[in-house]
């Protein structure tokens, strides 16, 4: 991969960098901002975000979405997936994108079911 094949635009072309090095620093700043937001939210824990949404606190959903955003930029810009052929991009991302949500879905639903059974069951397990 030659130095001139880097794609230098992030945020769908909203932000264009002059060189690959500048892009790296730009992504670092973006990742730091996201991490700072996460840490501040984690310390402050605003009461307005404590409402439940789809079985989880709104704040937790925000954390998970921000984490996936960070993961995207680490993979796309630091691991250079942005510069790879789209066939390679799909080969890497699709298996993970299909298998992980599937695993998360079945195991968390099952765990929630077990929680209900243990809470409403006749056997005292927490003594």
């Amino acid at each position: 991969m030659a130095a001139d094949t880097h794609k230098l635009a992030i945020f769908r072309g909203l932000l264009k960098f002059k060189s690959n090095q500048q892009k790296i620093w730009g992504v670092l700043i973006f990742l730091s901002i996201v991490t700072t937001i996460e840490v501040v939210l984690g310390i402050v824990k605003p009461a307005s975000l404590m409402t439940m949404f789809l079985g989880m606190k709104l704040l937790n959903w925000i954390f998970i979405i921000l984490t996936i955003v960070k993961a995207y930029y680490i993979a796309w810009d630091f691991m250079h997936i942005r510069d790879e052929k789209s066939s390679l991009q799909s080969s890497i991302v699709l298996p993970l994108l299909i298998l992980i949500p599937y695993l998360v879905f079945i195991l968390l639903v099952e765990a929630d079911y077990i929680f209900e059974v243990m809470r409403n069951g006749f056997v005292s397990w927490n003594f």
Binding site: I92, P95, L96, I100, L103, L107, A111, I114
Partner: peptide, 29 residues
């Protein structure tokens, strides 16, 4: 290296999902 990373990513997902399972199972403690 990508082969390894994808499989390792699935390994870590397995661990983290197992953690999520135990956490949801004991969500009130």
């Amino acid at each position: 290296m990508w082969f390894f990373i994808v499989s390792d990513a699935l390994t870590f997902s397995g661990f983290l999902v197992a953690y999520g399972f135990s956490r949801f199972k004991n969500i009130n403690t």
